[in-house]
């Protein structure tokens, strides 16, 4: 039996009755930025559900375009973050710790959070047994602890690939938040078999992959999109705290012709008073401690489809 509805959350309207979120220091928006720091293998074993590359091996352009992020784009992005006083919450293919430890050191040294985006962006969760999936999650827990001393708290599935068990296992193994659900502008409880799991808004709309590779927008238009998203969430956040995330990929945002428009948008946001410049973990912890129970209580059971 396959799912018709994944059943991961109840229905909670975005109306006046929704429990009110308060962020630290009266902030209206919890703002976080999630650079996806990724390693794509040039010739990985094949998953029957999805091939790694659009072109026959070796996909020189596909592979090298992504490699650009680690060689050049990341470093340019890092400087822009530093200039704006922003920390990243890194969605990490954990094998990066072995391949390019210099990047991990820079992130850890700045107090950035590192959370898991699987082992490689070319190893998909589709078709795994429970034991295999647990092995992948445990690998992430161990690798991030070994290289940064951090406890792994967050999950964004590698290349957004799943089984029906993924979120249950992530919660069972002690992680506290996921970025894979796109149903809300505020955090929301995720219903899992065990553990406590919250969905933190991550946004495909703000994601540079969607902006640049799907919607094909120009860099300046991307900057405008980010500013508009923020301005509206800031306005709404006066009533109840909102979350804004910008998911990034150094191989996209880190191009010279894209950096200035992005940095302008980042500065627009970080220049506001009532913004909490947070990490994914901090938002999850605050929500779980202060609002999770109210949200669960206020939610409506979803009715049956005819």
């Amino acid at each position: 039996m396959t799912w018709r509805d994944p059943g991961l959350y109840d229905y909670l309207p975005y109306d006046e009755k929704r429990p009110r979120i308060t962020w630290p220091n009266g902030a209206r928006v919890a703002f976080w930025v999630a650079p996806n720091i990724e390693f794509y293998e040039i010739d990985p074993p094949r998953n029957p559900s999805r091939g790694p590359w659009g072109k026959p091996h070796p996909d020189v352009v596909g592979y090298s375009y992504r490699d650009y992020g680690n060689r050049a784009g990341f470093w340019r992005m890092l400087e822009a973050f530093d200039r704006c006083g922003m920390r990243g919450s890194v969605s990490l293919n954990v094998a990066m710790c072995e391949h390019h430890p210099e990047i991990i050191e820079e992130c850890a040294r700045r107090g950035w959070e590192l959370y898991s985006h699987g082992t490689y962006n070319t190893r998909y969760m589709f078709g795994m047994t429970e034991a295999q999936e647990r092995e992948v999650i445990q690998d992430s827990i161990d690798t991030i602890r070994k290289h940064t001393g951090q406890k792994l708290d967050g999950w964004l599935a590698p290349a957004l690939t799943y089984t029906e068990r993924t979120l249950d296992l992530v919660a069972d193994m002690g992680l506290s938040y996921v970025c894979d659900l796109f149903h809300d502008d505020q955090p929301s409880p995720v219903k899992t078999k065990s553990g406590t799991l919250v969905s933190i808004p991550y946004s495909l709309e703000m994601n540079d992959v969607i902006a640049y590779n799907v919607n094909l927008v120009s860099p300046r238009a991307y900057g405008d999109i980010i500013k508009r998203q923020f301005d509206r969430l800031y306005e709404e956040g006066e009533h109840s705290g909102t979350v804004m995330c910008i998911p990034l990929h150094p191989y996209l945002v880190g191009w010279p012709y894209r950096m200035k428009a992005f940095e302008d948008a980042l500065r627009h946001i970080t220049g506001h008073d009532k913004v909490w410049l947070a990490t994914g973990r901090e938002i999850a912890q605050h929500f779980i401690a202060n609002h999770m129970a109210d949200f669960a209580r206020a939610s409506h059971k979803v009715g049956a489809a005819p």
């Binding site: 074993p45 998953n47 072995e98 082992t119 190893r123 078709g127 034991a131 295999q132 992948v136």
Partner: peptide, 14 residues
């Protein structure tokens, strides 16, 4: 599930 080599990483090194 996936064949065992799907969770083996031969080139996972510096």
């Amino acid at each position: 599930g996936m064949p065992p080599e799907y969770l083996q990483y031969r080139a996972r090194k510096y």
